[in-house]
């Protein structure tokens, strides 16, 4: 049996489409983890990146934090957090957020730095307040890059959120871990392809968001 057979067997089994272990349930759990982790990471990463980028200070500190964040092994962090806090949502969220903050932070900072300084100078000279300059002059131009950072963070979260299953939570990781444990390869492959599909869907969603929110006047560089 090859992989494609596994895939078709998994998806054609009607038992996989209902109940607490059904595809809709696991997908929505996975989506929930992803959105929650992405929201937390954005709430931390975006403001810090925007403000440091606007003032052009703290770039070195940022890249240090980002490198440290990237160096932390996600799985190790999960185990550590679970041992410290116990089972639950929080020990899963922490490693996912730690994973997602660096790309958001660094890309947002870089995006703000890459904005042409002359419109900013013109805006200041016209008497625009700093917050307005940040939100109405710099962000619209930096937006394609900022969204690019959010997109890579989102994709990393989608593929890494499978670890939730190690600590008895749901999500698509359930199929992979249970499948491996039960030597049910159909399930493993099914779970993996669902995760991959969700990553592709994430790409599509970000493409659509970019299309809608970025002004046609902004030459896309991302």
């Amino acid at each position: 049996m090859n992989v494609l057979d596994f895939v078709s067997a998994f998806f054609s089994d009607s038992a996989h489409w209902q109940g607490y272990d059904g595809i809709p349930t696991r997908l929505s759990e996975h989506l929930g983890y992803t959105l929650e982790a992405l929201a937390f990471a954005a709430v931390i990463g975006l403001p810090v990146g925007l403000v440091t980028g606007h003032y052009g200070r703290g770039g070195n500190a940022l890249s240090l934090i980002a490198t440290a964040g990237r160096a932390l092994p996600t799985f190790g962090l999960l185990v550590l957090m679970t041992m410290l806090i116990g089972f639950g949502m929080l020990p899963v969220m922490i490693p996912l957020v730690v994973l997602a903050v660096p790309p958001i932070l660094v890309t947002t900072y870089e995006a703000m730095r890459s904005v042409d300084p002359s419109p900013v100078d013109a805006a200041r000279g016209m008497g625009m307040a700093e917050t307005r300059i940040l939100l109405q002059v710099e962000v619209p131009v930096a937006l394609p890059l900022i969204l690019g950072g959010l997109r890579s963070a989102a994709i990393q979260i989608v593929s890494t959120a499978t670890i939730a299953a190690y600590v008895s939570l749901g999500g698509l990781g359930r199929y992979i871990i249970d499948g491996l444990y039960q030597r049910d390869y159909e399930k493993v492959v099914g779970g993996a392809s669902l995760t991959a599909g969700m990553a592709l869907a994430t790409l599509a969603v970000f493409w659509a968001i970019t299309k809608v929110t970025v002004s046609p006047g902004v030459r896309r560089s991302a």
Binding site: D116, S118, P119, V120, D121, A122, A123, G125, M126, V137, P140, V141, V214, S215, G217, V218, R219
Partner: peptide, 12 residues
Amino acid sequence: YVIQNAGLFQHR
């Protein structure tokens, strides 16, 4: 205030 390269807002 007018500057060298106009400094227009490219998104507007």
